[in-house]
Design a protein around this nucleic acid. Structure first.
Length: 712
DNA sequence: GTTCTAGAAC
DNA sequence: GTTCTAGAAC
C-alpha cells in the first residue's frame, strides 16, 4: 500500500488529502487501488475498515494515521464513507498551506451500490449479504453531498462509471509535483429541479420548504396530479429506473402505465426471486417453480397482480421466467417482471404495490428496519411478507448440500405460501372495505393460520409473516389448533397476585394494582384533596387532564364508584354512569373544538388499563405528544384494545357487559397510521408520518359517532 | 403509568 | 457509534 518514497515534496507540489465520499459498494477502495497502482505520487490509503491491525478501527485512528502520512510527505486517500459533513470535517482540517483537501464523490445509483455490496464476500468492511441493502439504504438516507464551503479545494462528482474512470485517470496521472485546479467538477446543476428529487430521496435538510412539503404529500398519495409533479421532480431517477427495463417481452413492467397517472386499484404483490441470489439456487429450476406456482395462483385470484422484481439489468432469472411465462400463456396483466430496487418500486420505478415480499434469512426478527423500513416508507405499501427459501450456499447456515429434491419442494412451498399469504391479505382487505368492523388483530391470526406457521421455525420453508408483530417463536404455539376466544370477552391474562384488597364490585377477584397504579383511584374517592389537578367534580365523575397526555388534548373522565376498577367490572347497572361519563367527555371535547376546530376527538376505554378506577379517555387524534413514546402507547389508542365509549354503551345495553380485547398481541402489533393504515417500522418514523398524513379516517371510525368533529 | 438502561438493531 | 426497544423497578 505504501510507496517507499519518503522524500519531501518540492514547494510547487502540494500534498493532497483526498476524501472519498460514497456508500458501501460505491467503489472507494477500487478507486484508490487503481490510482495507487499507476501513480508516481506517493499515496497512503487510510481505510477505516482495516486500520486496526487489519480490523475495523475508528475515526481517530484514521486521523492520526493520515497526519503521520502527511508528515512523511505522502498524500492520503481517506477511504471511509464520509457521507455527512460532520464525518468529513475533521479530515478537512488536515488541510493547510501545503496540503490541499479534495473530495471525490462516488455518487452512484443506490441499487448499484447495494448489488455490489450484496455480492461481495470477504470485503474488509464485512458488509455482505442481505444486511448490505439495509445498511446502504440507511446510509444514503443521511447523505450530505460535500460543498466547497466545508473547506475543500476541489470536489469531483462521479455519477456513473465514466465519471469514475475519468477521476481515476485524473489522480493516476498526477505526479508528485503536479497540482489540480481548485473548484467543483462534474456536479449537475444543484439548483435544477432534478436535484430536488434527489435531495428529497436523500432527505437533504436544505430542500426548500415548499418543495419538501409537497414531496411529503406525494408519499401519502397516488393521485394522478401529484404523480405528475413527482415525475417532474424526480425525473433523473425515473429515467434511470426506466432505462433498465427490458423491452423485449410481454411480461415487462407496466410501470409506464402507472406513471401516466392511471391509478392501479388491482392488489399487487411484488416479490424477488427467492433463493437464487445469495442462497445460490439453480436459476433454471427456480424459474420453473416460479412460473408454475404463479400459474396456479393467477387462475385462482381475480384481478390481483404478481410482479417479479430484480435489481439487476439483464437478470438471468427474469429472462428465464419471462420466456417460461410466455410459453405457458400466462396473462401478462396478472404477472409481469420489473427491474428495479424492490424498496423503491413506486418512488423510483412508478410501480404501485401494496404487498411486498422480502427474501429473508433465518435471523429475521420482528421490529423492522433496513430493507423492511425502506419498503414501509414507500407510498401504498401496507404489508411486507417475509419468506425464507431453501439455501444451497454451503457458506450459509442450514445449507441443503445440493439436495434439489428437498430444495425444489421447499422453494415451491415458499412461493405457494407467499401467494396464499398475499391472497389472505387481499381477502381480508376486501372484507374490511365492505364495512366489517372486525379488528385487524384477528385478521393477523387468519393470515398466520393460512401460512402453515405451525411448521418449525428452523425449517427452511417457514414463511415469516411479520405483520402485526407476531413473533416467529410465538407463532407456533399461537397457531396450534383452534384459536381461543381472542377478541371475545376474555379474562385478564395479565392478572397479578390476588389479595382481598383486590376484590371487585361484583365480588370477583382481579389483578393486584401497584402503588403507582392507585393515583386515579385516590383522586376519584377524594377529589377535593386534588383540587389543583382536577377540572371538574360532580357526584358521579371527576374530570382531569391526563398527567402524561398522548395528544394535544387528552383528558380523563373518572368514575367515582368505589370498586369499579376497570371496564371488566362494568355491568348493566353502570349503564347510566357510562352515559354520564360519555356526556361529560363529549362536553369537554366540544369545548376544545370551539377553541380549535381542526381537532378530532375519540372517546373510549382501555380494555385493560394500567391505572385503577374506571376512566374514560377523551383524546384528540393528532397524537402529537412528547409522552407518546412506545408501541404500547400507540397501540393502546389505535387498536381494538381501545374500546369506543359508544360501543361500550351498546354492548352493555345489549349483552350486559363490555367486550374486552385483552391481548398482548394487540399492544405489540406493528405500528400503523390511524388514518391511512400504513405501517411504520418504529415510533419515530410513525410520529413523523402522522404529522403529515392527511388521509381520511377509516370508515369504521366515521360510523356511529366514534369520532367527534367540530360542527361543519 | 413512567423511568432507567442493557443490548439489539441499524 | 447512534438509535430504538423492551424488561425491570417503582
Amino acid at each position: 500500500m505504501d510507496i517507499d518514497n519518503p522524500s519531501k515534496p518540492k514547494a510547487e507540489g502540494k500534498l493532497l488529502v483526498v476524501i472519498l465520499v460514497g456508500a458501501p459498494g460505491s467503489g472507494k477502495s477500487t478507486f484508490c487501488e487503481h490510482v495507487m497502482r499507476s501513480s508516481t505520487r506517493p499515496w497512503v490509503r487510510i481505510c477505516q475498515d482495516t486500520i486496526g491491525n487489519g480490523k475495523a478501527g475508528n475515526k481517530t485512528q484514521c486521523l492520526s494515521s493520515a497526519a503521520r502520512a502527511l508528515k512523511d510527505g505522502k498524500s492520503v486517500f481517506i477511504d471511509r464513507c464520509n457521507l455527512d459533513r460532520e464525518q468529513r470535517s475533521e479530515f478537512v482540517k488536515l488541510g493547510g498551506p501545503q496540503i490541499d483537501v479534495h473530495a471525490v464523490v462516488l455518487d452512484l445509483p443506490a441499487r448499484l451500490c447495494i448489488s455490489r455490496s450484496v455480492k461481495r464476500t470477504g470485503h474488509e468492511g464485512n458488509l455482505q449479504g442481505g444486511k448490505a441493502a439495509a445498511v446502504v439504504n440507511r446510509m444514503l438516507q443521511k447523505k450530505e453531498l460535500p460543498k466547497i464551503s466545508e473547506g475543500f479545494n476541489r470536489i469531483m462528482f462521479c455519477q456513473n462509471e465514466n465519471d469514475v474512470q475519468s477521476a481515476i485517470s485524473t489522480y493516476s496521472t498526477l505526479g508528485p509535483l503536479d497540482n489540480l485546479p481548485d473548484g467543483c467538477f462534474g456536479q449537475k446543476n444543484p439548483d435544477a429541479k432534478i436535484q430536488v428529487g434527489i435531495m428529497k430521496f436523500l432527505k437533504k435538510v436544505d430542500v426548500p420548504v415548499n418543495v419538501a412539503s409537497r414531496e411529503n404529500s406525494i408519499r401519502e398519495s397516488v393521485s394522478p396530479q401529484i404523480v405528475e409533479k413527482k415525475n417532474s421532480c424526480c425525473r433523473e431517477e425515473e429515467e434511470e429506473a426506466c432505462s433498465s427495463i427490458p423491452v423485449n417481452a410481454g411480461f415487462e413492467s407496466k410501470e409506464a402505465k402507472d406513471l401516466d397517472g392511471t391509478p392501479h386499484d388491482a392488489p399487487t404483490l411484488a416479490f424477488p426471486s427467492i433463493s437464487t441470489s445469495d442462497f445460490q439456487f439453480n436459476h433454471e429450476k427456480a424459474a420453473d417453480i416460479i412460473v408454475e406456482t404463479v400459474e396456479e395462483f393467477t387462475n385462482k385470484i381475480g384481478n390481483a397482480r404478481l410482479v417479479l422484481v430484480d435489481l439487476t439489468h439483464g437478470s438471468k432469472i427474469l429472462s428465464l421466467v419471462r420466456a417460461k411465462a410466455a410459453q405457458k400463456n400466462i396473462d401478462s396483466q396478472k404477472f409481469f417482471t420489473h427491474v428495479g430496487d424492490i424498496t423503491h418500486l413506486y418512488s423510483k420505478g412508478g410501480l404501485h404495490c401494496n404487498v411486498i415480499a422480502n427474501a429473508a434469512n433465518w435471523r429475521l426478527k420482528p421490529g423492522g428496519g433496513g430493507v423492511n423500513a425502506a419498503i414501509f416508507s414507500e407510498a401504498g405499501v401496507t404489508h411486507v411478507i417475509h419468506v425464507l427459501g431453501p439455501n444451497m450456499n454451503p457458506q450459509r447456515a442450514n445449507c441443503l448440500n445440493n439436495d434439489y429434491n428437498e430444495g425444489c419442494k421447499i422453494l415451491r412451498e415458499a412461493y405457494t405460501s407467499l401467494f396464499d399469504g398475499f391472497a389472505s391479505i387481499v381477502w381480508t382487505g376486501a372484507e374490511q372495505s365492505k364495512g366489517s368492523s372486525e379488528d385487524i388483530g384477528s385478521k393477523a391470526l387468519e393470515l398466520c393460520q393460512s401460512n402453515g406457521c405451525t411448521r418449525k421455525h428452523s425449517s427452511n420453508s417457514d414463511q415469516k409473516i411479520k405483520r402485526d408483530g407476531i413473533h416467529a417463536s410465538e407463532r407456533s404455539k399461537r397457531c396450534k389448533g383452534p384459536q381461543d376466544d381472542f377478541g371475545a370477552n376474555s379474562t385478564n391474562s395479565r392478572a397479578g397476585k390476588l389479595s382481598p384488597e383486590n376484590r371487585n364490585i361484583d365480588g370477583s377477584m382481579s389483578k393486584a394494582w401497584g402503588s403507582w397504579a392507585q393515583a386515579l383511584h385516590r383522586i376519584a374517592i377524594h377529589p377535593e384533596r386534588h383540587e389543583d389537578d382536577v377540572l371538574e367534580i360532580s357526584e358521579d365523575v371527576v374530570v382531569l387532564n391526563d398527567l402524561y397526555p398522548k395528544a394535544q388534548r387528552h383528558l380523563l373522565v373518572l368514575a367515582r364508584t368505589e370498586g369499579l376498577d376497570s371496564l371488566a367490572n362494568v355491568r348493566k347497572e353502570h349503564l347510566q354512569l357510562l352515559k354520564k361519563m360519555h356526556a361529560v367527555g363529549l362536553l369537554w371535547a366540544e369545548k376544545f373544538l370551539r377553541a380549535d376546530g381542526s381537532l378530532v376527538f375519540r372517546l373510549g376505554y382501555h380494555s385493560v388499563p394500567s391505572m385503577r378506577q374506571l376512566h374514560l379517555h377523551v383524546i384528540s387524534q393528532d397524537f402529537d405528544s412528547k409522552h407518546s413514546k412506545n408501541k404500547k402507547h400507540w397501540n393502546s389508542f389505535n387498536t381494538g384494545f381501545f374500546r369506543d365509549s359508544v360501543d361500550v354503551i351498546d354492548e352493555v345495553t345489549n349483552h350486559g357487559k363490555a367486550t374486552l380485547k385483552d391481548d398482548d398481541r394487540l399492544l405489540n402489533m406493528e405500528l400503523r397510521c390511524h388514518r391511512c393504515r400504513s405501517a411504520h417500522p418504529n415510533i419515530p418514523r410513525l410520529k413523523s408520518h402522522i404529522t403529515i398524513c392527511q388521509a381520511p379516517f377509516p370508515a369504521v371510525l366515521l360510523e356511529n359517532g366514534r369520532l367527534v368533529h367540530a360542527p361543519q
